[in-house]
Structures are given as structure tokens and as C-alpha cells.
Design a protein around this nucleic acid. Structure first.
Lengths: 320, 320
DNA sequence: GTGAAAGCGCTAACAA
DNA sequence: TTGTTAGCGCTTTCAC
């Protein structure tokens, strides 16, 4: 290729990287030759030399989950816009894989975007040490320089509680997320103030998937709540589905609320009341933390209450 | 690191790559030192030397779309299982970006998995030339050695038509996918035989998203179909949503069917009749085409008809 | 404005 | 079994 254009490899490099002093005629000759041969520099060699792969890594629990898929989409789009690539790993909701994938990717990428709700804190510190740059999603690593982007889920939960309380609900079941998930703990925080105000919250073990929601409904109903708040919209859709099977009407017999505002939540029947979080914004914010030296350790992303048809006043029940 | 263990770099390499003749004591010394320093070989250097990055690239129109998200999930999981990484790019449904991303990633990866419904055939050939290995999803490149994994959408469409015909439907609207999308053409093929048998198919321009579905309903209704087949389940959910707004009952007033069996389709109200395609299987098949030298050019993935509550006999209408 | 040469970090080939 | 050396493909000095 260099000999095709009758120049040295150095000159080829100068032309192709641009902004270097090269005579126009030579530059043209090189470009033509490159076009002819379809020459493109070897990225591994460039990376080795520059010490940067212009690549960002994204590690999430489940690539198939729309929530994470959209975060990924946001990040990949931002990355591509600044000529960066995106390396991904799904960890199958497994703390061991969260660690392995993160450590593995860390060596490749310039920066790592990590959503690892289950990884232990010590291991998280290891990852922080291994990665050139690290941004955490929905998790905070205290006493460290690691930045985070977190959704204020406690505000969301509180807003949902207030909404339900204002409708007259007194007994609310909370269908919990995966145990030990950092963001479930955030949600739990949001119940403090409503509980202090007299609301009864019944915590029911559940999970993060649609099927988890379906399966948790029957137990939740044994506590006779008049409303359910679900770990996320995924779960809520499962709940709606199971309630329909049971012949219960939503919101006539029971109110249901989700969290996240998944794309489908506006289109369930009834439409789902939820705490809307912009995942695209989340991804964008996470990306931004890479580029400049952002000062604040944690970026808080706020959502907003979206009231649809799945919540209404509780049914009148005969008093004894 | 090498001097910490008091050995040469070559020995370090031998220990860490394994399967090389090294004395146990030295091996231990190296491993301890590596552990201490947290040493991991530079992947760019390894790639440069080996000529392989152990990385697969995945290019899809929309990373946020559950259909592609699940394909990605399948591929990433298979890749990780054999110690490969996954590089992704979303192309925002733009043919130009499909090309640029593919060409760009091709240089990085050992193999490229490409879902580019809109890219022109000549450009596709360019990509085929640039990539070490290439597998196409839902597209075929004729007169080439490029392998494909395609869903037999024409069979799906035919099955849906037969199902609807057996219920008594005569006029069916098809809400088309993106113009020039290869897989929409496949679906169109599926109407040939039903049309020959006397079914009337009305083609309505639509698209691939939920919102496209919502927007296309009103026009579709002007043709007075008794059933609608949608480009995919996404569209179908939008259709259900709009029909509900209009006060039309499904399947009482009109039947609706989708294609793909998205995760949510079992949980809409009514449940969506659809042609179920296993995206995980799609991803897995695509991955398999990389490893051995598969003989057949094209792998066909078949789906199956899933009948739920959204399809039923057409309403009785007064004859004049 | 251009070429020659060094070297990024690693591993395979060759020596010892 | 281990160390020394060359070279993967590129970019960046340093000469000219």
C-alpha cells in the first residue's frame, strides 16, 4: 500500500490521521491508493501505540431487558458520535459474572460503565482499580473517586405512595426486587416517610421479571392490600396478567403501580401508573461522566410520576 | 512484574497462557506475582500478534428494540462462553450508518453479525469483502459465500392467513414494515398463496414501531378489513392500543395478529395471536455459523403459530 | 515535506 | 526448562 503510492509508511500514516504537514499531491496519491486497496489501519496496532482503544465497555445484568437495552442504546449512540466503540457483556444476573465480565472488559476499554447490582463492595473496589475509568449505574461506591449515575428511586416510591394515599389507600403491598440489589434498597428507603405517616406497607418477595410478578401475586393477595407497588414495570405487567386470570379488576378491585415507565406501560390495559425514568437520559449522563472531569461524584436522575388508569380509589368494603 | 517474579517476560507469558512447559515452582512464583500486581496482559498487544481479537461484532438497526436486544443477548452469551467479546453498534434504522458501522467494526472483529435490512446490495458486498467472517441476519446475499440466518417469515404469514381464513375472514389488512426492508419482502411473499385462494389482502404503509402501528390504524380501517396482520408484535401492540381508544373491541369487532412473539405479547389484553420466533435461537444459530465451516449457505429458522385471544371469527354483518 | 528507525506489549522461534 | 530475540502494524521522534 505504501509502495503503491510510492511513499513511506510514515507518510501514509500522516495523511490518514490528518492534520499533519503533507504536500497535497502526495496526500492525494495516498488517498487514492488507500481507496484502491481498501486499506484501513489495524486498530489493534493503533491501540497498542496510543494506549487507548477508543472503546467503552457496558456491563449489565440482562441485555434482553428493555431497561438495560435502552441504556445501552443511549450509550452506544453517544459513543459512536465521538468515534468510540461499545463493548458489551450481559451477566445473567449473576454476581460472579458481573465481576468476571467487568474485570475482563476493563483491560480492553478506556472506560467502563457498570451496572452490577449484586457485586460485593470489595470486588467492586477491585474493578475500580482495574478500570481506567469507571462509572456506576444505580449504585454508589462510598469513599472512592468512582462516579455514579443513580435514579432517585426513593423519591419515586414516595411519590407513588403519596398518590395512592391521596386516593384513600391504607394497605399497600410492595413486590420486592432481587434481594441484595442496591436499587431495591433505594426503593425501600422511599417507604420510610409514608410508613411514618401511617401507611401500611407489606413487603412481598418477588424479583425483577414479568414471571416473578405473576408468581408473587397470589401471596401478595393473602395480605389483603388495596394496592400493589411493583419493583418495576416488568413485574407490574406480570401482576396485571395474573390478576386478570384471577378475575380481579384493575383498578376496581385493586390498584397496581410500576416503576421505570417501560415502553409498553402506556399500552397495557389498563395503562400502568408508574414512576417514569428516562433510560436514554441515564445512558447519556453516564457517557458524559467519561469525557470531562466531572466534579460531583454522583449524578441524580429524577423521574416523574405518570398517572394512568391502573390506580384508583380502593373499593368500598363493608365495615363490621 | 517479570522482575518481581525473577523470570523473563517469556516465562510469564508461558505461565499465563497455560499448556506450556514450565516448572511448577516458577509457575507458582509467577502467578503470585501476577496476583500481587494485578497484572493482566495487554489485549491490544495480544491481538496484534495473534491477528485475532476474539471479538464478534453485532450490528443491528435498533439496540432498544427487544427483538434485536434478545438476538444480541443470545450472541453475547454464546460468545462469552467461548471467551469472546461482543462489540455492538446500533444504526438508528439508517442505511448509511448500517454501512459505516459495519465497515468500521469489520476491522476490529474476527466475525461480524449483520442485521442491515436497508443497506444496498453493492455496499453489502463491500462489507463482505472487508470482514474476516460475516453472517447476515434476515437477509441473503446471492452469488456469494456469505452465510445467513433467516426466519421463514413467508411461512408465518401464510400460517396466519390460513388461521384467519379458517375463522371466516375474507378481507385482511397487512400493516407493512419499513419500505425496502428485506424481511418485509419475505412477509409479502407469504400472501401469494392466500391471495390465490381468494383472500383479499389490503396493504397499508406502516413501519416497525409501536407508534407506527397506532398511526396506521385509522387508514387501515377505511378499507373495512375484518382482521389485521401486523409487521411485528410491536406494531400490533400499537394497533390494539389505538383500537381501544376508538372503542373497537378485539377480537369482537376486528381480529389482530402480530409476528415475532415479543415477550409482552402473551400479556396484552387480549393476548396477541402471533407467529412465534425464538430470537435466542436466532442469535445462537448466527453464532454457530462462525465456529465450524458450516456447509449450507442459509440457515432457516422456523417459528410457530401461537393462537391467543386477539383473533376470532369476524362479526356478523347485515348483508344487503 | 519526507524517510528511517525506534518502540508500544506481547508471544513464537530459536538457543542454551 | 528457561532466556534472548524478532516482529505483529502502526505512529512518532529525529534527521535530512
Amino acid at each position: 500500500m505504501a509502495r503503491l503510492a510510492e511513499v513511506s509508511t510514515a507518510t501514509v500514516s500522516r495523511v490518514l490521521s490528518g492534520g499533519k504537514p503533507v504536500s497535497p499531491e502526495v496526500a492525494d496519491r495516498v488517498r487514492v491508493a488507500a481507496q484502491d486497496v481498501g486499506y484501513r489501519p489495524n486498530p489493534a496496532a493503533q491501540t497498542l501505540l496510543r494506549g487507548s482503544s477508543r472503546t467503552v465497555g457496558v456491563v449489565v445484568p440482562d441485555l434482553g431487558n428493555p431497561y438495560f437495552a435502552e441504556i445501552l442504546k443511549g450509550v452506544a449512540a453517544e459513543a459512536a458520535a465521538t468515534d468510540h466503540h461499545t463493548l458489551v457483556a450481559g451477566t445473567e444476573e449473576d454476581p460472579e459474572q458481573e465481576y468476571r465480565s467487568a474485570i475482563e472488559l476493563a483491560r480492553w476499554v478506556d472506560g467502563l460503565l457498570l451496572c452490577a447490582p449484586r457485586m460485593s463492595t470489595p470486588r467492586l473496589r477491585e474493578v475500580a482499580e482495574a478500570a481506567r475509568r469507571l462509572v456506576l449505574i444505580n449504585r454508589v461506591l462510598r469513599h472512592s473517586a468512582v462516579g455514579s449515575v443513580v435514579v432517585d428511586y426513593h423519591l419515586g416510591v414516595r411519590a407513588l405512595c403519596e398518590h395512592l394515599a391521596s386516593l384513600g389507600h391504607k394497605r399497600i403491598a410492595y413486590l420486592q426486587g432481587p434481594t441484595a440489589a442496591w436499587s431495591d434498597q433505594q426503593r425501600q428507603r422511599g417507604f420510610r416517610s409514608p410508613e411514618a405517616s401511617g401507611l401500611t406497607i407489606i413487603r412481598v418477595p418477588c424479583g425483577s421479571t414479568l414471571v416473578d410478578g405473576q408468581d408473587a401475586v397470589d401471596e401478595a393477595l393473602t395480605y389483603k392490600p388495596t394496592a400493589m407497588i411493583c419493583f418495576n414495570d416488568h413485574v407490574a405487567v406480570g401482576v396485571l396478567s395474573r390478576l386478570r386470570e384471577l378475575g380481579l379488576s384493575v383498578p376496581g378491585d385493586i390498584s397496581v403501580a410500576g416503576i421505570d415507565n417501560a415502553p409498553m406501560s402506556a399500552h397495557t390495559d389498563p395503562g400502568l401508573t408508574t414512576y417514569a425514568v428516562s433510560t436514554i437520559e441515564l445512558g447519556r449522563q453516564a457517557w458524559e461522566r467519561f469525557t470531562p472531569r466531572v466534579t460531583t461524584a454522583t449524578t441524580h436522575v429524577q423521574g416523574e410520576l405518570v398517572i394512568r388508569a391502573s390506580t384508583a380509589p380502593p373499593p368500598h368494603r363493608p365495615r363490621r
